[in-house]
Write a protein that binds this DNA or RNA. Structure first.
Length: 678
DNA sequence: ATAGGGTTAG
């Protein structure tokens, strides 16, 4: 524990040593010393007493300064340079420190070359090569790596498991997967464990090169898989956005009886969040609690994010408040979660708490608060956060921040200002910026600025499906059907596919997927009866379908019936026929909800009410392009209530349904201690 | 003393 009172530096955090310590007692003190400051004091003492000449003492001083948590490479280098004849251990230590550093991995190679030229007593040993190879992998030095491989062979260390792993990593990082595979196949491995490690390294290499299929094939072929093999696959899938695959593999892991550990849970949670698989997320949380997996700041961040994205912001807050400690990512997850749920005031309070706690906000935290302001229409406040980010915290605004600001201004109807910002940005605007501007223009019916934004969007990013759809919808909203058909024709010619609108709902642990006008579900007939009933009730209530939401040039009656079969309405119909009153329906959608669905669903939720209303969560919109859903809902956000609470999570990308059995069932296990439903 | 897996984001 180190406490800074401000003026005086902390004293030694270890008992003061005897006047002339023995080399061994100095070494043990160094091992005890947790801060760099303590190391420096002991270093000074070693010089004063002449103990620094002892190679073991000097080596330990070097080790403590570069390999502790608060490592200082420059200091370590100066210690090293003071050694008249560093021993092998010291060379290895500094090489490793450089190899694992972010700033100067190439220094590891330089140092290694220097070592080869130095006195004959300190030639490299087994411990030298892993670090040197790691450095080669890091800077993609294939030439040097291959030479070092030759040296390894010559010295007879080709069967060393540690060296092999790093050779494989070196080849795969440099893009030579064939060499990496050959090396693994031809190696005489000491044991099965080493083989697992090598295969895991290969899989990692495939993923890095984007060869996902090959990675999976290798994984499936592996005879022995460790938890790390599973975790690696799950985390990589999640990192590249293959959330469905990540979850499916996690389930397979359950089925095969492989135990989860801390890293498994941390790796799968982002995938769960993105798929909005709340029940599975709850299962993960319960699993951690039951199996004494500590919910620390890291797992906590993932859980807070999961609960926010899956619609349970109160649970997210509860988890957040119970964490033993908070780091910038924890704060970030909480602030973004609150922003996502339109709880701007709480997001701001959270930000202030963070600052009070002395945590320096990262640029990602600012994405969260700016988002919160955007949701709540707090224009001035958003601007002031933006200025504070730049002027007080010295953070350079990135595309993300400009995106937030364009959203903020655009949604508030300040389109001139939004356009001005786009033109004056210090970074080149990308498609997301133009899309934000254009959709604001569409929202506010600003033709002039909208046309300019559309033109820019077309010039720069014409091959993107999202942009084309937005353009088409923009011109449709102007009634310019000529341009609409031009855009559609262009999409056809360039073979650009629009993401199909798609909604999911989880019922009894199973995810059901619906597309527009879907009649593929086994219960389709019943669903369509319910849809008809919904339409009748809407009609009785005097509801007039908002046909301006249909961006096709067709007759009015046709437009009305198209609206009825939007995927979210089908998902709700299915939810209504398959759950009891009092059940919250969570509908997940990949694209933005249309205005008609938005308002008619609110009415439907009222009909579905069978007991006195309770406050409900509505319209969660975690992505930028659907923020307007939240703004449009603002007036009803708090007054709206229903037992069948319908909350929407809207995402950008398209996911297919996961054919899943009920969560956590398999091998006689039950879901959260309850008997699983069939 | 040395290999393989981890949280936030328009």
């Amino acid at each position: 524990m180190q406490t800074h009172s401000g003026h005086s530096p902390p004293l030694l955090s270890v008992p003061f040593p005897p006047i002339t310590p023995s080399p061994s007692s100095l070494i043990s003190l160094l091992k005890l010393s947790s801060s760099l400051h303590g190391v420096r004091q002991l270093h000074a003492l070693a010089i004063k007493t002449g103990l620094f000449r002892d190679p073991l003492v000097a080596a330990e001083i070097l080790r403590s300064s570069v390999l502790s948590q608060r490592r200082d490479l420059r200091y370590g280098r100066s210690v090293f340079d003071q050694m008249p004849d560093p021993n092998c251990f010291s060379w290895n230590t500094l090489i490793r420190a450089y190899a694992e550093s972010e700033e100067a991995p190439s220094h590891a190679l330089a140092l290694f070359a220097q070592m080869l030229l130095s006195s004959t007593t300190t030639q490299p040993n087994q411990y030298t090569f892993p670090s040197v190879l790691k450095a080669c992998a890091c800077i993609q030095a294939a030439e040097a790596g291959t030479q070092i491989h030759g040296q390894v062979v010559k010295l007879g260390w080709s069967d060393d498991a540690f060296i092999l792993t790093n050779l494989v990593r070196m080849y795969s990082s440099c893009g030579f997967m064939q060499d990496a595979c050959k090396l693994v196949d031809s190696s005489l491995l000491p044991d099965a464990d080493a083989s697992v490690v090598l295969h895991n390294t290969l899989i990692d290499g495939f993923f890095r090169l984007g060869m996902v299929e090959q990675a999976r094939q290798l994984f499936d072929r592996m005879p022995n898989k460790s938890v790390i093999s599973w975790n690696g696959m799950i985390s990589k899938y999640a990192q590249i956005g293959l959330f469905k695959e990540a979850i499916a593999l996690f389930r397979k892991m359950q089925m095969e009886g492989m135990e989860h550990n801390f890293v498994t849970l941390v790796s799968v949670l982002p995938a769960i969040s993105h798929m909005c698989a709340l029940e599975l997320g709850e299962w993960v949380h319960a699993y951690a609690e039951k199996n004494d997996i500590e919910i620390d700041d890291v797992l906590g961040s993932a859980l807070v994010d999961m609960y926010s994205k899956c619609g349970n912001i109160n649970k997210a807050i509860q988890v957040f408040e119970q964490l033993p400690k908070h780091n910038p990512i924890t704060w970030s997850a909480m602030i973004s979660g609150l922003a996502m749920h339109g709880r701007a005031a709480e997001a701001r309070d959270c930000f202030q708490r963070m600052e009070k706690a002395g945590v320096i906000p990262t640029d990602i935290v600012f994405v969260g608060v700016l988002n919160a302001c955007s949701h709540a229409g707090l224009v001035e406040e958003g601007k002031s956060y933006f200025r504070r980010m730049v002027n007080v915290h010295g953070l350079r605004p990135k595309l993300e921040h400009y995106g937030c600001m364009v959203d903020l201004l655009g949604r508030a109807g300040l389109l001139e200002e939004a356009e001005e910002l786009v033109l004056s940005m210090s970074v080149n605007p990308d498609d997301v910026i133009y899309k934000a501007l254009l959709s604001s223009c569409k929202m506010h019916g600003n033709v002039e600025i909208g046309m300019r934004a559309a033109k820019r969007l077309m010039e720069h990013f014409s091959s993107d499906g999202d942009s084309m759809v937005l353009l088409s919808n923009f011109y449709a909203s102007l009634g310019d059907w000529g341009t609409v058909s031009q855009v559609r024709l262009m999409m056809k010619e360039l073979d650009i596919k629009k993401d199909p609108g798609c909604s999911w709902i989880t019922v009894n642990g199973r995810i059901h997927e619906f597309v527009v006008e879907d009649n593929t579900h086994p219960q389709s007939r019943k669903i369509h009866l319910m849809l008809a009933e919904m339409a009748d009730k809407l009609h009785e209530a005097g509801y007039v379908p908002d046909t301006t939401q249909v961006t096709l040039n067709i007759e009015k009656e046709e437009k009305e019936s198209t609206l009825l079969y939007h995927s979210e309405k089908i998902a709700i119909a299915f939810g209504l026929i398959s759950t009891n009153p009092g059940t919250t329906l969570h509908v997940v959608k990949n694209l933005r909800i249309c205005g008609d669905c938005h308002s008619s669903i609110k009415l439907i939720a009222k009909f579905a009410n069978q007991t006195p209303p309770t406050p409900a969560a509505v319209a969660l919109s975690p992505s930028a392009t659907c923020l307007c859903a939240a703004v449009e809902m603002k007036e009803t956000d708090t007054s709206y209530s229903a037992d069948h609470c319908v909350s929407f999570m809207i995402f950008f990308s398209f996911y297919r349904a996961i054919p899943l059995a009920p969560w956590g069932v398999g091998r006689g296990k039950t879901l959260l201690g309850l008997e699983a439903k069939a």
